Simulated assay, not measured.
Amino acid sequence: MSPLQTIPADHPQVTARRIGVLVANLGTPDGTDYWSMRRYLSEFLSDKRVIDLPSWKWQPILQGIILTKRPFTSGANYKTIWNNEANESPLMTITKQQVAALQARAQDLWGDRVMVDFCMRYGNPSTEVVVDRMVKAGCDKILFLPLYPQYAGATSATANDQFFRALMQQTWQPAARTTAPYFDRPDYIDALANSVERALGGATPRKLVASYHGMPKRYLTQGDPYHCQCQKTSRLLAERLGWGPEVIDTTFQSVFGREEWLQPYTVKHVAELARQGITDIAVISPAFSADCIETLEEIQGEIREAFVHAGGKNFTYIPCLNAEPDHINVLTTIIQENLGGWI
């Protein structure tokens, strides 16, 4: 007789046990309208991991000047890339594709014993909602996988924070694991190199600009390893491609506020390359697991325009790894490794 058959009739229903794999990304507004953008930006920019100013100082500025104007400009930018057919952002579309591929791999490997789902740190579906869904589906163990190759407090750490806050809401709290950053894994570097070779047809560009999301320089001095991990990713990519270190330049984009951020800034650097006579460049974004507003609008809009305006001619953007099979292979292997002892 199984244990479930011995449960008294008045006992709460017990669901068959499963393992959950929860994939997390940054997030996306629900729409491009003012209020959707305002809700999203308010949640994002209120995160102390993102903006670490005291609330008494920051919130009046955020809720006043910034959130009065910025939803209009951000909404206009999102409209240029919005997936109108699905009525969602490209990040949402691509994340769904990634998770569908991972669900298929999990089904092949483990059948119904593993449940794969996704959440967003900001916006929907929220971490709390998806964790609750997994627990109700019988997940007594959850592996949490933030889709950030390089660790940063403002990305990986805040995603983990939100995951653990969600666990605090559960009466029967599942066992939990989080994955390590994968910025230097050989299979990840291979996947990046393959994407470069596909985009460039095997040719070596005069310059490949590896543009990573920026962060205040102060965070580096406080011990955040992000800058070092970005530099290592670029170095390993150059070595894997058989290029000298001078071919790849590591830069940082999406600067916000007045304080100094990690440099060089991508938008200024590409313009300087053009002024130096380097008029043919390629740009890749190794910190992003999926194309999003920062790559589809910022890189292919503002950054491309800065390069062309300064005299540049040929600007090639290399897409993120998205749902490419070799990217799914990397993520599947990470999941397999981290489920060791659980399945």
Score class of each variant (00 low, 15 high):
Leu4Met: 06
Ile7Trp: 11
Pro8Met: 01
Thr15Trp: 08
Arg18Asn: 06
Ile19Thr: 15
Gly20Pro: 05
Val21Pro: 01
Asn25His: 09
Gly31Asn: 12
Trp35His: 15
Trp35Cys: 01
Trp35Gln: 13
Tyr40Val: 00
Phe44Pro: 00
Lys48Leu: 10
Ser55Pro: 11
Gln59Asp: 03
Leu62Ile: 03
Lys69Asp: 06
Lys69Ser: 11
Ser74His: 15
Ala86Pro: 10
Ser89Gln: 06
Lys96Ala: 06
Ala104Leu: 09
Val129Tyr: 14
Val135Thr: 03
Leu145Ala: 05
Ala152Gln: 04
Thr155His: 12
Ser156Met: 09
Asn160Asp: 09
Asp161Leu: 03
Thr171Ser: 07
Gln173Gly: 02
Ala176Asn: 04
Tyr182Ala: 05
Tyr182Ile: 02
Leu192Thr: 06
Ala193Tyr: 03
Ala193Pro: 07
Asn194Gly: 10
Ala203Asp: 14
Pro205Gln: 06
Arg206Leu: 01
Ser211Trp: 10
Tyr212Phe: 14
Cys230Asp: 14
Arg235Ile: 01
Leu236Gln: 15
Arg240Glu: 00
Glu246Lys: 14
Glu246Asp: 13
Glu246Trp: 09
Glu246Ile: 03
Thr250Ser: 10
Gln253Arg: 11
Val255Cys: 07
Phe256Asn: 01
Gly257Glu: 08
Tyr265Asp: 00
Tyr265Ala: 00
Val270Gln: 04
Gly277Tyr: 09
Ile278Glu: 07
Ala282Glu: 04
Val283Ala: 04
Ser289Trp: 07
Ala290Val: 07
Glu294Asp: 10
Thr295Ser: 14
Gly301Thr: 12
Val308Leu: 15
His309Glu: 13
His309Asn: 12
Thr316Ala: 05
Cys320Lys: 12
Ile328Asp: 12
Ile335His: 09
